[in-house]
């Protein structure tokens, strides 16, 4: 991909900001007939500033709920989430969010989408910054395109630029690459890593792709459903850039699959 990252004038986020601590968070959903589902059961988690953390688990394990609580779009019934010492009470531009569906504003061009956050916050003099971020995600030349004219990968890049232009302390990615084809997906993983390394932003991302979690994260929070809770936290001590076919990669992979009971049993010996 085009690596024009150096062109962006960053206001460096100091490595000390972007620390998230999830304290005793419990979230219960009650459906129409009064049945309760425990989406999160007493979750505790400390995320370091500048860390890349993934929430991994099968559907129903509460990973998206936890993400929405950190974003401020959902409130925990009990417990609290604290960012740099300040409890989170609602959405804020210091916590950027990218969904699986890019959710681009269809009535705005690429440029309009990227500049949305700055305009909403009443910031003038945005033209250069917006151009910089469009370049950062490799979409120069598409400034005036409308969302329906973009491919899935391009749309997700716009969503990324739209969140990043606000200089968030934390970037929350809710299955950001889930809808992309395998190759675009791997390409985008590298792009996100590149931006992460450049900016030092704390990134938390939800995924149910084991390989993606290992390839990208410093730590993998493995979650299990009914009730949603953290099963185990795995530190990925592989040097970066990582090789998807390294033997250690497979070791971590099989460990995670065992935790999730998806490893399967070896009934006979396989020969290549």
């Amino acid at each position: 991909m085009v690596s024009s990252a150096t062109a962006v004038a960053y206001t460096e986020t100091p490595a000390t900001s972007g620390a998230i601590s999830v304290r005793n968070v419990r979230r219960v959903f009650v459906n129409a007939s009064g049945e309760e589902t425990v989406a999160l059961e007493r979750v505790n988690l400390e995320i370091q500033p500048g860390e890349m953390v993934s929430l991994l688990g099968p559907s129903g394990c509460g990973k998206s709920t936890l993400m929405r609580i950190i974003a401020g779009l959902d409130q925990p019934g009990e417990g609290e989430v604290v960012l740099d010492g300040v409890p989170i009470t609602g959405p804020h531009h210091e916590r950027g969010l990218v969904f699986q569906d890019p959710t681009l504003f269809s009535w705005l061009t690429v440029k309009g989408n990227v500049s949305f956050g700055l305009k909403a916050r009443g910031i003038k003099e945005i033209a250069r910054e917006v151009d910089d971020y469009i370049r950062l995600v490799g979409l120069e030349g598409f400034q005036n395109a409308y969302p329906h004219q973009l491919s899935g990968g391009m749309a997700q890049r716009v969503a990324l630029a739209r969140a990043l232009v606000n200089h968030p302390k934390v970037l929350l990615l809710d299955e950001p690459l889930g809808a992309l084809d395998a190759f675009t997906r791997m390409q985008m993983q590298d792009e996100i890593l590149r931006i992460w390394e450049d900016r030092g932003t704390t990134m938390v991302f939800v995924t149910h792709d084991v390989d993606e979690a290992i390839y990208m994260s410093d730590r993998i929070i493995v979650m299990t459903p009914r009730p949603g809770k953290i099963q185990e936290i795995i530190e990925v001590r592989l040097s970066r850039p990582r090789a998807r076919n390294h033997p250690d990669f497979f070791l971590i992979r099989s460990k995670i699959l065992e935790i999730l009971h998806f490893a399967g049993e070896i009934r006979e010996n396989y020969y290549l």
Binding site: L73, H92, H93, R95, L97, F99, G117, A120, N166
Partner: peptide
């Protein structure tokens, strides 16, 4: 989702 994204962007 439009409103949620917009709110996280500072609207």
């Amino acid at each position: 989702a439009f409103f949620e994204v917009a709110r996280t962007l500072g609207a």
